[in-house]
Structures are given as C-alpha cells and as structure tokens.
C-alpha cells in the first residue's frame, strides 16, 4: 500500500503559490473542498486561475476567494448566483472564461486520461467556438477542445482511505472524480478517512493512483444553496 495521507490541510496545500492554476470540484456549493478553500483564504494565495463549474455564492465557496480578490481568472460554466463575481467580471477586474458544462468536465477528464484534445458538438455556431478548429464528422459539425493543464486539483469525497481511494455521496460527486489526476497534484479531502482495507474495493469510485494527498476535513458546513421542500 502506498500511503497518501497528510496530517492536516496546511500540509495538504504545501507547494501552492501565487499565479497557479487550480481545479476545484463541486457543483454549486455541493461537494466543494471547503477545507482547502478556507486554507487558500487563510494563506492569502493570490492571482489564481480557478477551474470550477461555479464560483460559489458571495459568502461561501469560491466566493470567499473572490471577496479577497485572490482570483485572477475563473474558468466556469455557470456563475449566476454570485453578485460580487458579476460585479468583478463586468468591471473587468476578473478575467472569465465561460465553457459549456460538458466541455468543462471532458477537458478535466482528457487531462486525467492523457488525451490532448477532443471534438465536441457543444458550442458550434456560437461565440464559444470562435477561433477554434472545427471539423465535420458524419454530416455534423464539431469543435476541437483541449485538455486542461493545472497545478493542483482540490476535490472533496465522502469517504477515503490511507491509499487515496475515494467514495463519493449523492450529487456531491459531480466534477470531483473528473478532476482527480487531472492536475500535477491532486489533493482529496474527505468527511471520513479510514485505514486501508476498510473500504470494499468493489465500491471505490476513484482509485488512489489518481490522488497524491488525502486528509480528513476538520469540519463541513455543507451549506444548502436552494432549500426546497414540500408540505406533508
């Protein structure tokens, strides 16, 4: 067994520097690496390029990094829930690259799997395809999209073991598995870290080979963005 455990979030973030490109898992506030984000805020690492489906809300998730102007560029598919984000983008303070959600996921997975690029129909005929190579396959047009290059991937799983094997829960899975192994260093934070041999190998979602560091998050707020219920 190759151990991937680090003792705390500070050790997990060792090597992160200004100007780096980071991948961060999560969809909305669901399945985000809360502890890694808090530590990035604490260490005040700046001029970051962040690849993440969303940008959090004003006072949680990546919104915390935006508040402190630590992000230079966001690469996302949807940013509708964050006023500070919209303000920084429209004023030109923040560079933003908006990417179709499936393309975002696939650009992560291409990096994980060693594909330099791939063709997708998403965005053909729109400004997303401007300046990009296009090609016809079987009578339909496709756009060439490239694998991401990132320094760190911060992902969040439900359970993990010392070997870095991960199990996700519910829709908190989202982009997290796609980002594992898609950056030079993948840091996984989990709600519950267990000894190797505890998790059933049949139930592992992401094998530990894609993870370089793993730690148990100190606490999880798991904030709900849109609490919707029905009456009994």
């Amino acid at each position: 067994m190759i151990r991937k455990t680090v003792s705390n979030v500070t050790e997990a973030l060792s090597g992160t520097k200004d100007n780096m490109t980071l991948m961060l898992g999560g969809f909305g506030l669901c399945g985000i690496p809360e502890n890694a984000i808090a530590e990035l805020v604490k260490q005040n690492i700046k001029d970051l390029t962040c690849i993440s489906n969303n940008a959090g809300v004003d006072d949680f998730g990546l919104g915390l990094l935006l508040q402190k102007k630590q992000i230079k560029k966001m690469v996302s598919s949807y940013v509708g829930e964050n006023d500070e984000f919209e303000r920084q983008m429209l004023s030109g303070e923040l560079d933003v690259e908006l990417i179709p959600q499936g393309t975002l996921a696939e650009r992560c997975r291409a990096a994980q799997g060693g594909f330099p690029a791939f063709y997708t129909p998403a965005g053909y005929g729109t400004e997303v395809a401007e300046g990009k190579e296009t090609r016809e396959f079987n009578g339909k047009m496709y756009v060439l999209e490239h694998a991401f290059k990132a320094d760190f991937a911060f992902v969040k799983a439900w359970k993990g073991d010392e070997a870095g094997n991960l199990i996700f829960k519910g829709t908190a899975r989202n982009f997290n598995p796609c980002m594992c192994g898609a950056a030079k260093i993948t840091v996984a934070e989990v709600e519950e870290l267990v000894p190797a041999g505890t998790l059933d190998p049949n139930q592992i979602h992401i094998p530990g080979i894609f993870v370089q560091r793993i730690f148990q998050g100190e606490r999880y707020e798991k904030r709900i963005e849109q609490r919707t219920v029905r009456t009994r």
Partner: peptide, 24 residues
C-alpha cells in the same frame, strides 16, 4: 440532504431505480 440537489441547486429526492454519477 445537502449532498442531493438538482442542477438548479435545489434539494431533491430520488426515485427507486435512481443513480448518481460524475459530470463527465
């Protein structure tokens, strides 16, 4: 459950036979 939402970020439930998967 904060871990079970839809694309509109609303809390949801699942039906028998449901499945979860990654974005790709």
């Amino acid at each position: 459950d904060a871990d079970i939402i839809n694309a509109g970020k609303q809390t949801i439930t699942t039906m028998p036979g449901a499945s979860f998967f990654d974005s790709a």
